[in-house]
Amino acid sequence: MINLLWTIYLGLLGTASLGYLLKGKYKSIPGKIDFVVSVITWIGLLGYVKHIQWLNPLTWKVITISALLWDILFGMLLKDHQGEDILQEISIGKRRALMFVTLVLALGPLYYGLFRYSF
């Protein structure tokens, strides 16, 4: 049952990113880097869910820490949220707090699985 929930979560992450890719949302260099980082982290989560060791644990430790730092940097600072109408009325401090909470809720399980896979 747990593997089914992990697989559903992995499918939701992949579907969202592939939808963004098909809509052309990854036009900038940071956006393209984010897509590549996402694909690498999906591979790690898939390895965790299916109990397959693709690379050595040290490599996954580096990938996990680097990807986590990238997602925080990209989600909080590099991604252009300024043009979205829904965020115009929120102050920059509250906007960043909202983005952080969203990142934790959406990507928390991903990094939990990667942490378990690496360490």
Rank of each mutant, 00 (worst) to 15 (best):
D85R: 10
Q88D: 13
Y117E: 05
R95T: 11
L13N: 06
A67T: 00
K79Y: 15
D34K: 05
L13T: 05
G44M: 02
I29R: 12
G113E: 03
L5Q: 10
Y112D: 12
T15F: 13
F100W: 10
G113I: 02
Y20L: 11
A67W: 00
L77N: 09
L58N: 15
V39K: 00
V39D: 00
Y20R: 10
S38M: 09
L98V: 14
K50S: 12
I33R: 00
K61Y: 07
G44W: 01
T41I: 03
L5G: 08
T7R: 07
N3D: 12
V101K: 14
I8R: 00
K61E: 08
S91Y: 04
L5M: 11
L103I: 14
G31M: 04
P57C: 06
M76D: 05
L87M: 09
L98E: 13
T41L: 04
W60F: 08
S66W: 03
G31P: 07
R95K: 15
D85I: 11
D85L: 10
Y26I: 03
K32V: 07
W6R: 09
S28W: 10
V104I: 13
L103M: 14
K23D: 08
Y112T: 14
G83Q: 11
V62D: 06
L45E: 05
D34H: 12
S28F: 09
S91C: 06
G31V: 04
I92A: 14
L87K: 06
M1I: 09
G14V: 01
Y9M: 03
Y112E: 11
L46N: 02
I52R: 06
P30K: 08
G24R: 03
L21H: 04
W60S: 03
I33M: 02
L12R: 04
S28G: 09
G93V: 08
G75T: 01
T102I: 13
G11P: 01
Y20M: 12
G113P: 03
L107H: 14
S118I: 02
M1F: 09
I8D: 03
M76F: 08
Q53S: 12
I63C: 04
M99L: 15
W60C: 02
I43K: 00
L98Q: 14
Q82C: 12
T41D: 00
L78Y: 07
L45W: 08
I90P: 00
G75A: 01
L58S: 15
D34N: 14
W6D: 06
L5H: 10
H51C: 09
L21W: 06
G11I: 05
Y26A: 02
L22W: 05
Y48M: 04
K94Y: 11
I8M: 03
K94T: 12
L4W: 11
M76H: 05
Q53D: 15
L110R: 11
S66M: 06
I52P: 00
F100R: 06
Y111I: 03
K61L: 08
T102A: 14
L46I: 07
P30F: 06
L103H: 14
G47L: 01
V101Y: 12
F115G: 08
D34V: 07
P30N: 07
L103G: 13
Y20T: 09
I92N: 15
S38N: 10
Y48K: 04
L45C: 12
T41Q: 02
T102L: 13
I63G: 01
M76S: 06
